[in-house]
Computed example of a mutant assay.
Amino acid sequence: MPDMRVVLARELGYCSGIRRAIDAAETALRSEGTVAATDTLLHNAGEMNRLGSIGLRSVELLSDEELGAATVLLPAHGSTLSEHLGRIASARAVWDLTCPIVNRAHDAVSRFADAGVPIVVVGDKEHRETRYLMEAAGSQLLRVVTSEQDLDTLEISVSRVGVVYQTTQSREFRQLVLAWFRRRGIEVAEEMTLCPEVLRRQDGAVALARRCTAMLVLGDSSSANTRRLVAVAVSACPRTYLIGDAAVLPEVGLNCVDIVGVVSGTSCPQTTIDEVVAGLRQVCPDVRVEVDAWPESVL
């Protein structure tokens, strides 16, 4: 029976921003007292369940008395002013775990707003990070663009716009947005706020997908950057699957002649990666695992 070849992407598991948030949450949970989050700290249900099992609670479920003695954690994807000034203002301590790269995008929006530049935010409308950027834009927010369909219906009467991106958007969609403005003669003052690590993962996923017969994208379906990895990989490898955990591997239809590429979203824990590799060994008794030698992209 032939060996299944499994090629792991060079960057797997948590990104630096998510790792920072997880480390902070675990530090808080090792201390005495109540620790609670205003929302999911990261888009991975399994990891949030793990944190819940060691004591992380929801702010919504705390009494006023409990909240007054609690340490409150704000998510990695940003938090709005209304959250800071709302109920959590009475907490004993508030830890803002917003990713530094997300804060960099927020600062870019604020600079445009302060300069009176009309702002277009490119991002998923309902995503917490996009709402964080929209708040920074204030009255200068012109439009949120999520898709090509949004561009098709976009009507802009100004001659100059500031464009800022939700950090997990794709390089391809950025180029599409810029081309739309160029065709209409609208000047763009752009802040390149796409996350370098997310871009490297997207580029690596495409390069790996071109050399594989099947692609596994590990992560939670609620994660925007994970879904985007699926979108970029499937264009090069139609047999691309989003894998939340190893239990679904038997349903994918892999076989021992496959070359299987493995990439992950930035909220995927190492335990999931290890379990999937172990699960692949159940699919095929002889599995050869290697790390992709594809070079890192140059931004």
Rank of each mutant, 00 (worst) to 15 (best):
M1E: 07
M4C: 06
V6M: 01
R10Q: 08
R10P: 03
G13E: 03
C15E: 13
I18Y: 01
R19W: 03
E26I: 01
T38V: 14
T38I: 08
A45E: 04
E47W: 01
M48V: 02
L56N: 01
E60G: 14
L62Q: 00
D64N: 10
E65F: 06
L67D: 00
A70G: 07
V72T: 10
V72D: 14
V72I: 13
L74P: 15
A76F: 02
G78H: 02
S79A: 14
T80R: 12
E83I: 11
L85E: 15
S90R: 13
C99G: 05
C99R: 03
P100N: 00
I101F: 09
I101E: 02
N103S: 13
N103D: 09
A108T: 03
S110F: 07
A115T: 10
A115F: 03
P118L: 02
V120L: 07
V122P: 05
G123N: 01
D124R: 06
Y132V: 00
Y132W: 05
L133A: 09
L133F: 13
L133Y: 15
A136L: 07
A137L: 08
L142C: 05
E148P: 11
Q149L: 12
D152F: 04
L154C: 05
I156P: 04
I156K: 09
V158C: 14
S159L: 13
R160D: 09
R160F: 12
V161W: 03
V161P: 00
V163P: 01
V164C: 07
Q166A: 14
S170D: 08
L176A: 15
L176T: 12
L178H: 05
A179K: 15
R183T: 06
R183H: 11
A189L: 10
E190Y: 12
E190T: 04
P196G: 07
E197I: 01
E197D: 04
E197T: 12
V198A: 10
R200F: 03
R201K: 14
D203H: 14
G204F: 04
L208M: 01
R211N: 06
C212N: 04
M215T: 03
L216E: 05
L218Y: 08
G219Y: 06
S221Y: 14
R227L: 13
L229Q: 11
L229I: 13
L229V: 15
V230K: 00
V232A: 03
A236C: 04
P238D: 15
Y241N: 13
Y241P: 06
G244A: 09
D245Q: 05
A246N: 09
V248L: 12
V248N: 14
E251W: 13
V252E: 09
V252P: 00
G253K: 13
G253I: 15
N255Y: 15
C256D: 11
D258V: 02
V262T: 13
S264Y: 00
S264C: 01
T271P: 00
I273R: 10
I273H: 06
I273A: 02
D274M: 07
D274T: 09
V277A: 08
L280K: 09
Q282Y: 14
P285C: 04
V287I: 09
E290Q: 09
E290V: 15
A293M: 12
W294A: 14
